[in-house]
Simulated scan of single mutants.
Amino acid sequence: MTTYRNFPMVPRVIFGNGSFSQIGDILKLKRKSANAPFIFLIDDVFKGKELAARIPLVENDKTIFVSSEFEPKTYQVDDLVEQIKAEYNELPSGIIGIGGGTLLDMAKAVAIMLTNPGSSAEYQGWDLVKNPAIYHVGVPTISGTGAEVSRTTVLLGPERKLGINSDYTPFDQVVLDPDLTQGVPKDQWFYTGMDCYIHCVESLEGTFLNAFSQSYGEKAMELCNDVYLKDIPEDESRDKLMMASWHGGMSIAYSQVGVAHALSYGLSYLLGVKHGIGNCLVFNHLEEFYPEGVKLFYKMMDKHNITLPTGICKDLTEEEFTTMINVALSLEPLWENALGKDWKKTATPEKLRSIYAKI
């Protein structure tokens, strides 16, 4: 008899413009004691801004501003955990991540590592976490990554870029307030939204596809088409992209991503290229694997006057190419989803190098 994975989902979610104002009431029910604070990890672009002033600090709650300029790293997670443990006598009541994928992944990782020994680098992989995370909440301020709903927290470690994939990773509560995504720079809005679009393409065209993944992936794809190819009001666009991100994240819960994400991980690990633009840089050269998806991607770029940077890899040494290739090839589930069990016949080091050389 087939044994199916029993995946967790986010148990509580609130959606709506202005819903962030309810976070104080939500957290009030989860406070363990006056000595167990809530720790808010917030993107430092909001330092001194209105959003930071709206955080409902009570008792000895604390806000920690974190830069999202670069991909989240395992040593950053370890440093935050050490800082929190040194400052308080008991575990916090919860961790709240406010920002894009970087901050959401940091919040999930910190919540896990407060109850698990060692370094977060030791948990990069699948189902290595033994102890439940503390209560953690995700508040996205940009849409596309699906980090708010996924069971992974993607980190750059000393040896690889790889998620902490576990049943304890998903948030206990998510607050989806489209108002918080106002003012996102256009290029960032595009690149992060394309992360969602590429989730859909890779899920819907993967060998792991099933009715569960397909239902979410198709809805996310429909929403992405509305946002990036149609002329709709800005407030409607924000709502739809936020739900596209949610559905796109769900579409890979029971399947996987594919070639673009695997290659993008190599770029991020070696060059620090951020995830959204990294996916775009790679996807731009994947007509061989996703011909229809890439064709639509070109239409989206053209409509929004997006020009991708070029020459990213032109000065790399053979050793550096090899590093990227090894990181990409280590993500075996992604390749199997994209190409099937015989994926190694197609995804050769030579093939990967030829793609990286075009970027």
Rank of each mutant, 00 (worst) to 15 (best):
F190G: 04
F190I: 08
Y191F: 14
T192V: 15
M194G: 10
M194C: 14
C196K: 08
C196W: 10
C196D: 10
Y197C: 09
Y197M: 12
C200G: 06
C200M: 10
C200W: 06
V201Q: 07
E202L: 04
E202A: 02
E202R: 11
E202D: 13
S203N: 10
S203E: 05
L204K: 12
L204Q: 12
E205Q: 15
E205N: 15
T207R: 15
L209F: 05
N210E: 11
F212M: 09
F212D: 02
F212H: 07
F212A: 07
S213N: 02
Q214I: 00
S215Q: 12
S215D: 04
Y216L: 10
Y216R: 12
G217A: 00
G217N: 06
E218W: 11
K219E: 06
A220S: 14
A220H: 08
A220N: 06
A220K: 06
M221G: 02
E222D: 13
E222R: 13
E222W: 07
E222C: 07
L223P: 01
C224H: 03
D226H: 12
L229Y: 14
K230C: 09
D231K: 09
D231S: 12
D231Q: 10
I232Y: 06
I232H: 05
P233Q: 06
P233L: 01
E234D: 13
S237Q: 07
S237V: 04
S237A: 13
D239K: 13
K240H: 00
K240Y: 01
M242E: 03
M243R: 10
M243E: 08
A244I: 00
S245N: 02
S245W: 03
S245D: 04
H247Y: 15
H247K: 00
H247P: 02
M250Y: 07
M250A: 14
M250E: 12
M250Q: 13
M250I: 14
S251Q: 06
S251G: 09
S251Y: 01
I252K: 09
A253F: 00
Y254E: 12
S255G: 13
Q256L: 08
Q256F: 03
Q256P: 08
V257I: 15
V257C: 15
G258R: 09
G258T: 13
V259W: 05
V259P: 02
A260D: 05
A260C: 08
H261F: 06
A262S: 11
S264V: 02
G266A: 05
G266N: 04
G266C: 02
L267G: 00
S268M: 08
S268L: 08
S268V: 07
Y269F: 15
Y269H: 05
L270E: 00
L271A: 03
L271Y: 04
G272I: 09
G272T: 07
G272W: 10
V273S: 01
H275C: 03
G276C: 08
I277R: 06
G278I: 00
G278Y: 04
N279H: 08
C280S: 09
C280I: 06
L281V: 02
V282I: 14
F283D: 01
H285M: 03
H285F: 13
H285R: 09
H285W: 13
L286A: 02
E288I: 14
E288C: 14
E288F: 14
F289K: 15
P291L: 01
E292P: 01
E292L: 02
G293R: 01
G293H: 04
V294N: 04
V294Q: 11
V294Y: 05
